[in-house]
Simulated scan of single mutants.
Amino acid sequence: MLDRFKAFWTGVILAPVVNLLIRLKVSPDVVTLVGTIGVCVGALAFFPRGHLLAGVIFITCFVFSDMIDGAMARKTGRSSSFGAFLDSTLDRIGDAAIFSGLALYFAGTGDNRLYLWISLICLVMGAVTSYARARAESLGFDAKVGIAERADRLVAILVMTGLGAIFDAPILMYVALWALAIASTITVGQRIWTVRTQALAAE
Rank of each mutant, 00 (worst) to 15 (best):
S79K: 11
S130F: 02
G35C: 07
M160W: 12
F82H: 05
F141M: 08
P170T: 04
I37Y: 09
G189S: 12
R49H: 13
I157Y: 01
D3Q: 11
A176C: 05
I192T: 06
L33H: 01
R49A: 15
T36E: 05
S184K: 00
T194H: 03
T129K: 08
R191Y: 11
V30I: 14
G83Q: 10
T10G: 02
F47E: 07
R150S: 04
F5K: 09
V31L: 03
T32D: 05
L14F: 13
P48F: 00
M160P: 05
T109A: 14
K6N: 05
I192V: 15
D95L: 01
A183Q: 01
I186K: 00
T185S: 14
L123H: 05
D152L: 02
A202S: 14
A15H: 14
G70N: 02
L14C: 06
D3N: 14
M125I: 00
K6I: 08
A97F: 10
A43L: 07
V41L: 14
L116R: 08
T194K: 12
S130D: 07
F8H: 09
V26K: 04
A179L: 10
L154E: 09
T76W: 06
A132G: 02
R133N: 05
L2K: 04
V12Y: 12
V128T: 10
G108D: 11
L33G: 01
G146A: 08
G146L: 08
R150A: 07
A103D: 03
G50M: 08
A7M: 04
N112S: 10
A169T: 13
V63R: 04
S138P: 08
G55K: 03
V195R: 04
F99I: 03
A183I: 00
D66E: 10
E203R: 14
W193K: 13
I121Q: 00
P28C: 10
R92D: 03
S65Q: 00
A176H: 11
G110K: 09
F85L: 15
G162D: 10
V41I: 14
G83D: 11
F46Y: 13
S130V: 13
A151E: 06
F141S: 03
V175G: 02
R150Y: 02
G189C: 12
D95E: 15
T76R: 01
L158G: 11
D69C: 05
W193T: 06
R150V: 04
E203L: 12
R4C: 00
G77K: 05
G35R: 03
F8E: 11
T60G: 15
F8Q: 09
G11L: 13
S81P: 01
